[in-house]
Protein backbone atom coordinates (compact mmCIF):
# COMPACT_ATOMS: atom_id res chain seq x y z
CA UNK A 1 0.00 0.00 0.00
CA UNK A 2 1.59 3.29 -1.07
CA UNK A 3 0.35 5.33 1.87
CA UNK A 4 1.52 2.94 4.55
CA UNK A 5 4.62 3.92 6.44
CA UNK A 6 5.96 2.59 9.73
CA UNK A 7 7.24 5.07 12.27
CA UNK A 8 10.64 4.72 13.85
CA UNK A 9 9.00 2.86 16.74
CA UNK A 10 7.75 0.18 14.31
CA UNK A 11 4.06 1.17 14.54
CA UNK A 12 2.50 1.00 11.06
CA UNK A 13 0.95 4.33 10.08
CA UNK A 14 -1.35 5.17 7.19
CA UNK A 15 -2.64 8.34 5.58
CA UNK A 16 -6.41 8.49 5.56
CA UNK A 17 -8.64 10.67 3.43
CA UNK A 18 -10.56 12.95 5.81
CA UNK A 19 -13.05 14.26 3.29
CA UNK A 20 -13.88 10.76 2.05
CA UNK A 21 -14.34 9.53 5.64
CA UNK A 22 -16.80 12.32 6.38
CA UNK A 23 -18.68 11.61 3.14
CA UNK A 24 -18.97 7.85 3.88
CA UNK A 25 -20.05 8.53 7.46
CA UNK A 26 -22.71 11.04 6.42
CA UNK A 27 -23.95 8.86 3.55
CA UNK A 28 -24.48 6.01 6.00
CA UNK A 29 -26.14 8.27 8.54
CA UNK A 30 -23.56 7.50 11.22
CA UNK A 31 -22.85 9.97 14.01
CA UNK A 32 -19.34 10.92 15.07
CA UNK A 33 -20.17 9.50 18.50
CA UNK A 34 -21.08 6.12 17.00
CA UNK A 35 -17.86 5.96 14.98
CA UNK A 36 -15.78 7.19 17.92
CA UNK A 37 -17.27 4.49 20.18
CA UNK A 38 -16.50 1.70 17.70
CA UNK A 39 -12.94 2.91 17.09
CA UNK A 40 -12.34 3.62 20.78
CA UNK A 41 -11.38 7.30 20.44
CA UNK A 42 -13.12 10.59 21.25
CA UNK A 43 -15.48 12.47 18.94
CA UNK A 44 -12.90 15.29 18.85
CA UNK A 45 -10.44 12.85 17.27
CA UNK A 46 -12.95 11.77 14.63
CA UNK A 47 -13.63 15.44 13.91
CA UNK A 48 -9.90 16.13 13.51
CA UNK A 49 -9.47 13.16 11.17
CA UNK A 50 -12.33 14.36 9.01
CA UNK A 51 -11.34 18.02 8.92
CA UNK A 52 -7.72 17.53 7.95
CA UNK A 53 -6.89 16.56 4.42
CA UNK A 54 -4.70 13.49 4.82
CA UNK A 55 -4.09 12.81 8.52
CA UNK A 56 -1.44 10.23 9.36
CA UNK A 57 -2.84 7.74 11.91
CA UNK A 58 -2.04 4.29 13.29
CA UNK A 59 -3.04 1.48 10.93
CA UNK A 60 -4.94 -0.33 13.75
CA UNK A 61 -7.10 2.73 14.22
CA UNK A 62 -7.64 2.97 10.47
CA UNK A 63 -8.82 -0.67 10.35
CA UNK A 64 -11.29 -0.05 13.19
CA UNK A 65 -12.40 3.16 11.50
CA UNK A 66 -13.12 1.25 8.28
CA UNK A 67 -15.12 -1.32 10.27
CA UNK A 68 -17.13 1.43 11.93
CA UNK A 69 -17.89 2.93 8.53
CA UNK A 70 -18.88 -0.52 7.21
CA UNK A 71 -16.23 -0.05 4.52
CA UNK A 72 -12.95 -1.56 3.40
CA UNK A 73 -9.66 -0.12 4.58
CA UNK A 74 -8.78 0.73 0.98
CA UNK A 75 -11.88 2.95 0.78
CA UNK A 76 -10.63 5.37 3.42
CA UNK A 77 -6.91 5.39 2.69
CA UNK A 78 -5.37 8.15 0.65
CA UNK A 79 -3.67 6.56 -2.36
CA UNK A 80 -2.48 9.24 -4.74
CA UNK A 81 -0.81 11.79 -2.51
CA UNK A 82 2.76 11.32 -1.31
CA UNK A 83 3.10 10.38 2.32
CA UNK A 84 3.60 13.51 4.37
CA UNK A 85 6.06 13.57 7.24
CA UNK A 86 4.58 11.72 10.21
CA UNK A 87 2.54 14.25 12.14
CA UNK A 88 1.83 11.78 14.89
CA UNK A 89 4.94 10.92 16.91
CA UNK A 90 4.13 7.31 18.01
CA UNK A 91 1.65 8.26 20.72
CA UNK A 92 0.95 6.20 23.84
CA UNK A 93 -1.90 3.66 23.31
CA UNK A 94 -4.58 5.57 25.22
CA UNK A 95 -3.98 8.76 23.27
CA UNK A 96 -3.39 7.02 19.97
CA UNK A 97 -5.51 9.38 17.98
CA UNK A 98 -4.50 12.72 19.38
CA UNK A 99 -2.70 14.40 16.47
CA UNK A 100 -2.03 18.10 16.78
CA UNK A 101 -4.69 20.06 14.91
CA UNK A 102 -3.47 22.34 12.10
CA UNK A 103 -6.00 25.07 11.33
CA UNK A 104 -6.70 25.44 7.61
CA UNK A 105 -6.17 28.95 6.16
CA UNK A 106 -9.53 30.52 5.36
CA UNK A 107 -10.00 32.57 2.18
CA UNK A 108 -10.78 36.24 2.80
CA UNK A 109 -14.35 37.00 1.67
CA UNK A 110 -14.81 39.74 -0.87
CA UNK A 111 -18.22 41.30 -1.51
CA UNK A 112 -19.29 43.37 -4.46
CA UNK A 113 -22.06 45.81 -3.66
CA UNK A 114 -24.19 44.68 -6.61
CA UNK A 115 -24.21 41.13 -5.24
CA UNK A 116 -25.76 42.04 -1.90
CA UNK A 117 -29.34 41.75 -3.19
CA UNK A 118 -28.61 38.37 -4.78
CA UNK A 119 -26.98 37.13 -1.59
CA UNK A 120 -29.90 38.38 0.48
CA UNK A 121 -32.38 36.50 -1.72
CA UNK A 122 -30.27 33.36 -1.52
CA UNK A 123 -30.10 33.66 2.27
CA UNK A 124 -33.89 34.04 2.46
CA UNK A 125 -34.38 31.00 0.24
CA UNK A 126 -32.01 28.95 2.39
CA UNK A 127 -33.81 30.02 5.55
CA UNK A 128 -37.18 29.03 4.10
CA UNK A 129 -35.77 25.66 2.98
CA UNK A 130 -34.35 25.12 6.47
CA UNK A 131 -37.70 25.88 8.07
CA UNK A 132 -39.46 23.49 5.69
CA UNK A 133 -36.94 20.73 6.49
CA UNK A 134 -37.35 21.35 10.23
CA UNK A 135 -41.14 21.08 9.91
CA UNK A 136 -40.81 17.85 7.90
CA UNK A 137 -38.33 16.43 10.41
CA UNK A 138 -40.54 17.10 13.43
CA UNK A 139 -43.61 15.81 11.60
CA UNK A 140 -41.97 12.48 10.77
CA UNK A 141 -39.93 11.95 13.94
CA UNK A 142 -41.36 9.72 16.61
CA UNK A 143 -39.80 8.61 19.81
CA UNK A 144 -38.84 4.97 19.78
CA UNK A 145 -37.98 3.19 22.93
CA UNK A 146 -35.06 0.86 23.41
CA UNK A 147 -34.76 -1.22 26.54
CA UNK A 148 -31.75 -3.35 27.40
CA UNK A 149 -32.01 -5.76 30.32
CA UNK A 150 -29.34 -8.05 31.76
CA UNK A 151 -30.21 -11.49 33.13
CA UNK A 152 -27.56 -12.84 35.44
CA UNK A 153 -27.53 -15.53 38.16
CA UNK A 154 -27.47 -14.13 41.70
CA UNK A 155 -24.40 -16.19 42.58
CA UNK A 156 -21.79 -18.47 41.02
CA UNK A 157 -18.93 -20.63 42.21
CA UNK A 158 -15.44 -19.35 41.30
CA UNK A 159 -14.11 -21.31 38.32
CA UNK A 160 -17.55 -22.56 37.21
CA UNK A 161 -18.92 -20.92 34.02
CA UNK A 162 -22.26 -19.13 34.28
CA UNK A 163 -24.40 -17.59 31.51
CA UNK A 164 -25.30 -13.92 31.09
CA UNK A 165 -27.96 -12.58 28.73
CA UNK A 166 -28.61 -9.03 27.58
CA UNK A 167 -32.03 -8.66 25.95
CA UNK A 168 -32.53 -5.62 23.73
CA UNK A 169 -36.12 -4.71 22.92
CA UNK A 170 -37.34 -1.86 20.75
CA UNK A 171 -40.61 -0.64 19.28
CA UNK A 172 -38.82 0.81 16.26
CA UNK A 173 -40.06 -0.55 12.96
CA UNK A 174 -36.89 0.39 11.09
CA UNK A 175 -33.55 -1.41 11.36
CA UNK A 176 -30.78 0.46 13.18
CA UNK A 177 -27.18 -0.12 14.19
CA UNK A 178 -26.16 -0.51 17.78
CA UNK A 179 -23.07 -1.11 19.86
CA UNK A 180 -23.50 -3.09 23.04
CA UNK A 181 -20.63 -2.66 25.46
CA UNK A 182 -20.55 -4.92 28.51
CA UNK A 183 -17.96 -4.47 31.27
CA UNK A 184 -17.36 -7.55 33.39
CA UNK A 185 -15.94 -7.67 36.91
CA UNK A 186 -12.16 -7.34 37.16
CA UNK A 187 -11.84 -10.88 38.58
CA UNK A 188 -13.77 -12.60 35.81
CA UNK A 189 -12.91 -14.35 32.57
CA UNK A 190 -15.27 -14.22 29.58
CA UNK A 191 -15.92 -17.37 27.57
CA UNK A 192 -18.19 -18.24 24.69
CA UNK A 193 -20.41 -15.51 23.19
CA UNK A 194 -23.58 -15.88 21.13
CA UNK A 195 -23.40 -13.99 18.85
CA UNK A 196 -19.65 -13.52 18.89
CA UNK A 197 -18.28 -10.50 20.70
CA UNK A 198 -15.15 -8.38 20.31
CA UNK A 199 -13.01 -8.75 23.43
CA UNK A 200 -10.99 -5.92 24.93
CA UNK A 201 -8.71 -7.13 27.70
CA UNK A 202 -7.27 -3.91 29.13
CA UNK A 203 -8.37 -3.48 32.76
CA UNK A 204 -11.66 -5.24 33.47
CA UNK A 205 -12.78 -7.41 30.55
CA UNK A 206 -14.95 -5.48 28.07
CA UNK A 207 -17.12 -7.25 25.51
CA UNK A 208 -18.53 -5.43 22.48
CA UNK A 209 -21.19 -6.41 19.99
CA UNK A 210 -21.68 -4.29 16.87
CA UNK A 211 -24.95 -5.26 15.30
CA UNK A 212 -27.78 -4.12 13.08
CA UNK A 213 -31.10 -4.66 14.80
CA UNK A 214 -33.81 -5.47 12.28
CA UNK A 215 -36.38 -6.97 14.63
CA UNK A 216 -38.05 -5.97 17.87
CA UNK A 217 -36.04 -8.25 20.09
CA UNK A 218 -32.42 -9.38 20.13
CA UNK A 219 -30.46 -11.47 22.62
CA UNK A 220 -26.74 -11.13 23.28
CA UNK A 221 -25.38 -13.85 25.52
CA UNK A 222 -22.05 -15.01 26.85
CA UNK A 223 -20.48 -17.31 29.39
CA UNK A 224 -18.14 -16.02 32.06
CA UNK A 225 -16.52 -17.36 35.19
CA UNK A 226 -15.02 -15.84 38.29
CA UNK A 227 -11.32 -16.52 38.64
CA UNK A 228 -10.74 -19.62 40.85
CA UNK A 229 -8.86 -17.56 43.44
CA UNK A 230 -11.82 -15.24 44.07
CA UNK A 231 -12.92 -15.36 47.71
CA UNK A 232 -16.38 -16.68 48.51
CA UNK A 233 -19.09 -14.18 49.53
CA UNK A 234 -17.46 -11.32 47.59
CA UNK A 235 -19.77 -9.35 45.27
CA UNK A 236 -18.87 -8.56 41.65
CA UNK A 237 -20.41 -5.87 39.46
CA UNK A 238 -21.46 -5.89 35.81
CA UNK A 239 -22.13 -2.69 33.88
CA UNK A 240 -23.02 -2.01 30.29
CA UNK A 241 -24.38 0.47 27.77
CA UNK A 242 -26.08 0.31 24.41
CA UNK A 243 -25.24 3.03 21.89
CA UNK A 244 -27.47 3.49 18.88
CA UNK A 245 -26.99 5.44 15.67
CA UNK A 246 -28.88 8.54 16.70
CA UNK A 247 -28.10 12.16 17.59
CA UNK A 248 -30.54 12.41 20.50
CA UNK A 249 -29.89 10.59 23.76
CA UNK A 250 -27.86 7.97 21.94
CA UNK A 251 -26.72 5.81 24.84
CA UNK A 252 -28.70 3.82 27.39
CA UNK A 253 -27.61 1.90 30.47
CA UNK A 254 -28.30 -1.82 30.58
CA UNK A 255 -30.75 -2.39 33.40
CA UNK A 256 -31.64 -5.60 35.22
CA UNK A 257 -29.22 -7.62 37.32
CA UNK A 258 -25.88 -5.95 37.96
CA UNK A 259 -24.14 -8.02 40.63
CA UNK A 260 -23.13 -11.59 41.29
CA UNK A 261 -21.87 -13.09 44.53
CA UNK A 262 -19.10 -15.67 44.74
CA UNK A 263 -20.70 -18.71 46.38
CA UNK A 264 -20.11 -22.43 46.98
CA UNK A 265 -23.57 -23.07 45.49
CA UNK A 266 -24.10 -23.74 41.77
CA UNK A 267 -25.57 -20.76 39.89
CA UNK A 268 -28.64 -22.83 38.88
CA UNK A 269 -29.40 -23.59 42.55
CA UNK A 270 -31.13 -20.25 42.94
CA UNK A 271 -32.28 -20.77 46.55
CA UNK A 272 -28.86 -22.13 47.61
CA UNK A 273 -30.30 -25.22 49.32
CA UNK A 274 -27.68 -27.66 48.01
CA UNK A 275 -29.86 -29.26 45.35
CA UNK A 276 -31.38 -28.35 41.98
CA UNK A 277 -35.12 -29.02 42.08
CA UNK A 278 -37.61 -29.29 39.20
CA UNK A 279 -38.55 -25.61 39.26
CA UNK A 280 -34.91 -24.48 39.20
CA UNK A 281 -34.12 -26.87 36.35
CA UNK A 282 -37.12 -25.72 34.26
CA UNK A 283 -36.30 -22.08 34.99
CA UNK A 284 -32.72 -22.56 33.73
CA UNK A 285 -33.91 -24.22 30.52
CA UNK A 286 -36.60 -21.60 29.88
CA UNK A 287 -34.12 -18.76 30.37
CA UNK A 288 -30.98 -20.10 28.72
CA UNK A 289 -32.05 -23.25 26.81
CA UNK A 290 -33.41 -21.34 23.85
CA UNK A 291 -30.08 -19.78 22.92
CA UNK A 292 -28.71 -21.97 20.20
CA UNK A 293 -25.14 -23.03 20.75
CA UNK A 294 -24.75 -21.59 24.26
CA UNK A 295 -23.20 -24.41 26.28
CA UNK A 296 -24.14 -23.32 29.79
CA UNK A 297 -23.22 -26.61 31.49
CA UNK A 298 -26.54 -28.44 31.18
CA UNK A 299 -24.87 -31.86 31.67
CA UNK A 300 -23.62 -30.86 35.14
CA UNK A 301 -26.98 -29.26 35.98
CA UNK A 302 -28.86 -32.43 35.01
CA UNK A 303 -26.40 -34.56 37.00
CA UNK A 304 -27.04 -32.41 40.09
CA UNK A 305 -30.81 -32.51 39.44
CA UNK A 306 -30.82 -36.32 39.31
CA UNK A 307 -28.71 -36.54 42.48
CA UNK A 308 -30.05 -36.00 46.00
CA UNK A 309 -27.80 -32.98 46.41
CA UNK A 310 -24.27 -31.68 45.98
CA UNK A 311 -21.45 -30.00 47.87
CA UNK A 312 -18.65 -27.78 46.60
CA UNK A 313 -15.25 -29.37 47.14
CA UNK A 314 -12.64 -26.58 47.32
CA UNK A 315 -9.77 -29.09 47.05
CA UNK A 316 -10.88 -30.65 43.77
CA UNK A 317 -12.62 -27.43 42.60
CA UNK A 318 -15.60 -29.59 41.64
CA UNK A 319 -19.03 -30.42 43.05
CA UNK A 320 -19.39 -33.74 44.91
CA UNK A 321 -22.77 -35.30 44.08
CA UNK A 322 -24.77 -36.91 46.89
CA UNK A 323 -26.46 -40.12 45.74
Amino acid sequence: MDSEKPLAGGIPMVNIDGARIRRIREDKGLTQLYVATVVGVTTDTISRWENRRYPNIKKDNAIRLAEALESELADIIEHSQPVPPAEEPAPPPDTAAAEPATPLPLPKPRFASQNIVVLGAAFLLLALTGLALLWWHTATEEESQIIAVRILPAHATPGIPFPVIVEVTTNSSLPFSLILKETLPQDSIPGQGKPRFVFQESGPPVLKWIDKLSKEHAVYSYLARLKPQVKLETVHQFTGRVTVRSDDDPSITISGATSLQASPFHWADSNSDGRIDDEELLSVYETYGGIEGLTFGNKLIEDIWTAKGYRWNPKTQEYDLLR
Binding site: H137, A139, T140, E141, E142, E143, S144, Q145, I146, I147, A148, T170, S172, S173, L174, F176, V244, S246, D247, D248, D249, P250, S251, I252, T253, S255
Partner: peptide, 16 residues
Protein backbone atom coordinates in the same frame (compact mmCIF):
# COMPACT_ATOMS: atom_id res chain seq x y z
CA UNK B 1 -34.06 4.99 29.24
CA UNK B 2 -34.94 5.85 25.69
CA UNK B 3 -33.28 6.79 22.45
CA UNK B 4 -34.82 8.45 19.46
CA UNK B 5 -34.87 6.81 16.05
CA UNK B 6 -36.55 8.41 13.09
CA UNK B 7 -39.08 6.36 11.21
CA UNK B 8 -42.00 7.29 8.98
CA UNK B 9 -45.27 8.10 10.70
CA UNK B 10 -47.16 6.41 7.90
CA UNK B 11 -45.67 3.05 8.87
CA UNK B 12 -46.82 3.49 12.46
CA UNK B 13 -50.33 4.42 11.36
CA UNK B 14 -50.47 1.37 9.10
CA UNK B 15 -49.28 -0.88 11.93
CA UNK B 16 -51.81 0.64 14.34
Amino acid sequence: MTAKIIHPRTQSLLLL
